[in-house]
Simulated scan of single mutants.
Amino acid sequence: MFDRRLKILLLLSILFTLLPYPLILSIDLKTHDLTGLSLMKHQGKGTPPVPLIRGWNDGVNPVFNNQVIHLDASPSYDEDGSIVRYTWCIGDEILHGKEVDYRISAEVDSLELDKLPILCFSLLVEDDSGNTAMRVLLLRILPNMLYLSRDGLTPKPERGRMELVMPLTGCRTLTYRFDTPLKLPCCKVDLHIKKRGILRHGLREVSLYAILENGGKILVTKGRVPILGDSIDLSGRIGRDIVVSGFEIRFTGLPLSRIDILTDQSYIGFS
């Protein structure tokens, strides 16, 4: 059902280029329903302006929740005049200006692709002759934090503990796979593991790998475990347009050494 609604939205945005007036569209964050469709008259003489948004693709762009995004309409132009007004329509909100910042704030309860919220931005530009034109930007909202649990990564923390015992090989792996692969934007990745006790108890090193759609793995970050402290903090980066099927956390240390992880305070964060 969601795919059909998204196709309708994309079709409407394409039809805009064939009409003498712009369309303003919005999507409800929770239900993904089309919530608004209004028409604005094309007035004035001459050719309409061309609205462009710097740095975003024409398809559905992935972004992380609770981050500030920058919207820049500077590339927009008018062939026979100048643009005098820039208006951004985001759901029920209206912002004015060539460049605006907007904080993404949505309720993300799932990692399933068809359940992730879609946010629609409409850029409306008007030239000095009264002509108007519009461009639609679609964003898929991804959770900015994934908490560790026994059953998998989850957008919401689950209170509990995981006790890991190093095998005789001295290496223990936690593998988390998504039901459907997710395309991630370029981002910083933080691994935070909260553990019981301040001693490392034979634990030596922790590594975080991203599992790719083709089954390969790339190292995101790794580091040594401090001798003292009740947490492990590592940071790395993921490049643009990487499709990830999951993550893998590797622990190395002395055979039979232990780590007791507090799951509601341990997570992979994105920013």
Results as ranks from 00 to 15, higher is better:
Asp3Met: 15
Lys7Leu: 10
Ile8Cys: 10
Leu10Thr: 07
Leu12Lys: 05
Ile14Glu: 14
Thr17Met: 14
Leu18Arg: 06
Tyr21Asn: 03
Tyr21Pro: 08
Pro22Ser: 07
Ile24Gln: 11
Ser26Ile: 03
Ile27Gln: 10
Leu29Ser: 13
Thr31His: 13
Leu34Lys: 02
Thr35Arg: 13
Gly36Leu: 11
Met40Ile: 15
Lys41Val: 12
Gln43Trp: 14
Gly44Val: 00
Gly44Phe: 13
Gly44Tyr: 04
Gly46Trp: 11
Thr47Glu: 15
Pro48Val: 00
Pro49Ile: 03
Ile53Pro: 11
Trp56Ser: 04
Asp58Gly: 14
Pro62Ser: 13
Ile69Arg: 00
Asp72Tyr: 03
Ala73His: 00
Ala73Tyr: 00
Tyr77Val: 06
Asp78Arg: 04
Asp80Thr: 01
Ile83Asp: 06
Tyr86Ile: 01
Tyr86Cys: 02
Ile90Leu: 08
Ile90Asp: 03
Asp92Val: 08
Glu93Pro: 11
Glu93Arg: 06
His96Phe: 08
Gly97Val: 02
Val108Asp: 00
Ser110Phe: 07
Ser110Val: 07
Ser110Arg: 05
Asp114Val: 11
Lys115Cys: 09
Leu116Pro: 06
Pro117Asn: 03
Cys120Val: 03
Ser122Tyr: 06
Ser122Cys: 14
Ser122Leu: 09
Val125Pro: 02
Val125Leu: 07
Ser129Lys: 15
Ala133Ser: 10
Ala133Gln: 09
Ala133Ile: 03
Leu138Val: 11
Arg140Tyr: 12
Asn144Ala: 11
Asn144Arg: 01
Met145Thr: 09
Leu146Arg: 02
Leu146Phe: 02
Tyr147Phe: 15
Leu148Met: 08
Ser149His: 02
Thr154Gln: 15
Glu158Pro: 07
Arg159Phe: 14
Gly160Asp: 04
Arg161His: 07
Met162Pro: 12
Val165Trp: 12
Met166Val: 04
Pro167Thr: 01
Leu168Arg: 10
Thr169Met: 12
Thr169Glu: 13
Arg172Leu: 10
Thr175Met: 14
Tyr176Val: 10
Asp179Thr: 05
Leu184Trp: 05
Cys186Phe: 09
Lys188His: 14
Asp190Thr: 06
His192Glu: 07
His192Arg: 08
His192Ala: 12
Lys194Ile: 13
Arg196Thr: 14
His201Gly: 08
Leu203His: 00
Arg204Gln: 06
Glu205Cys: 08
Val206Thr: 07
Leu208Pro: 02
Leu212Ile: 02
Gly215Thr: 00
Lys217Asn: 04
Gly223Lys: 08
Gly229Glu: 01
Asp230Leu: 13
Ser231Thr: 05
Ser231Trp: 01
Ile232Thr: 01
Ser235Gln: 00
Ile242Thr: 11
Val244Gln: 04
Ile249Pro: 03
Thr252Leu: 12
Thr252Gly: 10
Gly253Glu: 02
Pro255Ala: 03
Asp260Arg: 15
Leu262Lys: 10
Thr263Val: 14
Thr263Cys: 13
Ser266Pro: 03
Tyr267Leu: 09
